[in-house]
Design a protein around this nucleic acid. Structure first.
Lengths: 345, 345
DNA sequence: TGACATATTTGGAACGTTCCAATTAACTGT
DNA sequence: ACAGTTAATTGGAACGTTCCAAATATGTCA
């Protein structure tokens, strides 16, 4: 109707009390008399009043907004991460700025600046490749807690939530070895990320442990996407001695690898064992169901958000770093003979 | 460093000018002398000043924030939609609140309320099932433009951006008929949504047009997800006379249908033709590549955002509704004999 | 140089809240 | 009925900006 926003003083006037009283009602203070509380509450409804959080923030300089920036929303891992964050953030009465950096540090810088101007209370960041500690320094310096997820950011005064990439990769390769594979590839992911190098390290160490010599050709880097999986297989087909199994950088790559294998008339899980990483939601329902290292992105999002909330409420920035453990979920894509009990549901 | 935020008056003091001048510099006004502009700009950098958009909004009551709520971020269609929105919103210097309703109207109501309190300039809404016009009425009434996407919301004073579901479904079924199929199913999606009923209507009309009698059993509703596709196939296997092709509610369902078929030793694209809807990013790289009705979710997000921006800038809420056209992209999953020229890349 | 135009700068009020100190109202018990 | 509590209420300053009207500086022309 009216173009003009109704404010706290409008209700005050209508109710014949002072704006302070209305404010008290709004915050559910026990100081105010039951009768006046009712009268005011009624008016609040009738006049279609909407609380102006911006004005409140201005006064108390603490907002109910958290920022989250991911590098690729299109990747279900990050989408689920965001959903996990949203769940806890939303039920704490906060609202989230979500932005997408598309792996661009510039863009990331921009959105972080923008979020800062808008007064976020905290930030969850999955840093784009090439992010420097200095990109988040101003945040941390002004007392805004930051939780970095997925990749780490050495030297920055932030909390970090990583998955145990090394151990996960190691256990996956061990499993393949146990199934009798000797020619095992690592497919997908860029060489220059910490996540990738951790996983490759786990892969290497597991091979060494099993007494299998490392074949450098078998480490096939490519984009960490479904398309990247396809190209990795294409490159593999040129080898004279082909691998019989692959640990993939992530589930997206693993799906792409399955696609690529089929295009070469190899049935994933039969002629070739495939293991993914992340356990995104489709891993369970795909055919063949994907054996993968479960990272539970949604849970990770939740934990990150809880960590952040803790710091926001405590009003201090911590620097703890959590490594969440990870477990191999054996399904069909690695040629597992039987279903695991957990998968019966 | 310091716990206290530096404000416009701090720089003013440091520069020996008034806060008004600093404000002018901030907005790039031509009114200020080049020399003072430089001095002030330098100080702004040195003192680590950060603009307080909240305070500015308070004064001019127009923010640089748009809200977007989708029902399922986990679904790549919506994730891509959000990315499309983010692109234009971000380059217009805005920032987006993104929330996830999980198809819950209550949750949706909450987040909309929360966004309103935080002073969004506009809202893009993909309504949860069961959303009423009254859920957005307060927004529209207070002059905040709303663009509803994907599903429509009759009776609400909003703009709407839909894809031509009817025509898309019709052309998909026509294609199947042309390939010689007579027993064509429609799989996935809930019966009670407008999107679903439009697509089913297109499916029906195309059958009628081809003189094929409608078999009610062949309309198999299920969740609009990958898992829903699997269950649809399971239900289908019970039929004595099975379909030979299916138009699916969306791509997620179509992938699930492919999974389900494989689990029954039917090769999608060979023994059974599958067509999806949406053309999500994986449709192209999947094996078999998915024939699908292309909706271009990212483009749709961009268009929605542009529509919204236009209204925000004009300062008025319009009520136009756009139906974006849609086209069938023929790939392998329907048993197409040849590649289309456009797919050669 | 004086008068006028133009370029630059500037105080304050306003936006909608919260919070504090202070006031007023409503009860006690004697 | 009075001091002493306790319960409710309240004005005003403050938060960091924008915007307006007004002031001041600078320049121009005769």
């Amino acid at each position: 109707m009216s173009k003009i926003r109704t404010s706290i003083v409008d209700i005050a006037r209508a109710a014949g009390v002072s704006k302070s009283t209305v404010s008290l009602v709004l915050q559910g203070s026990p100081l105010v008399n039951e009768k006046t509380r009712e009268k005011v509450s009624a008016l609040i409804n009738d006049l279609g009043y909407v609380y102006n959080r911006g004005a409140a923030n201005l006064r108390q300089s603490k907002s109910k907004i958290v920022g989250i920036v991911v590098n690729d929303l299109t990747n279900s891992f990050f989408a689920e991460l965001a959903v996990g964050v949203d769940m806890v953030v939303q039920s704490a009465g906060y609202v989230q700025f979500l932005a997408h950096s598309g792996e661009s540090v510039d863009r990331q810088r921009q959105v972080i600046a923008s979020m800062r101007e808008n007064g976020i209370a905290g930030l969850i960041l999955s840093p784009a490749r090439g992010t420097e500690a200095s990109d988040v320094k101003p945040l941390a310096d002004s007392g805004i807690p930051v939780v970095v997820v997925v990749r780490n950011l050495p030297g920055a005064k932030v909390s970090t939530l990583l998955s145990d990439n090394y151990a996960g990769a190691k256990s996956a390769v061990r499993h393949l070895v146990k199934l009798g594979h000797r020619r095992i590839a690592f497919m997908g992911g860029f060489a220059d990320t910490a996540v990738s190098s951790d996983r490759v390290r786990g892969y290497r160490d597991a091979l060494t442990e099993a007494g299998i010599p490392l074949n450098q050709n078998f480490i096939i880097h490519s984009a960490p996407s479904r398309a990247g999986g396809v190209t990795a297989v294409e490159r593999m087909t040129a080898f004279t001695e082909r691998p019989t199994a692959a640990l993939c950088f992530n589930d997206a790559v693993a799906f792409g690898v399955c696609d690529g294998l089929r295009a070469n008339n190899i049935e994933p899980g039969k002629g070739f064992a495939v293991i993914g990483f992340d356990d995104v939601i489709e891993a369970k329902t795909a055919v063949p169901a994907l054996t993968t290292v479960s990272v539970d992105p949604q849970g990770m999002g939740q934990r990150a958000a809880q960590l952040l909330m803790k710091q926001i409420n405590a009003g201090q920035v911590d620097q703890e770093t959590l490594v969440t453990s990870v477990r191999l979920v054996v399904r069909q894509s690695c040629g597992a003979p039987v279903k695991q009990p957990e998968e019966l549901a």
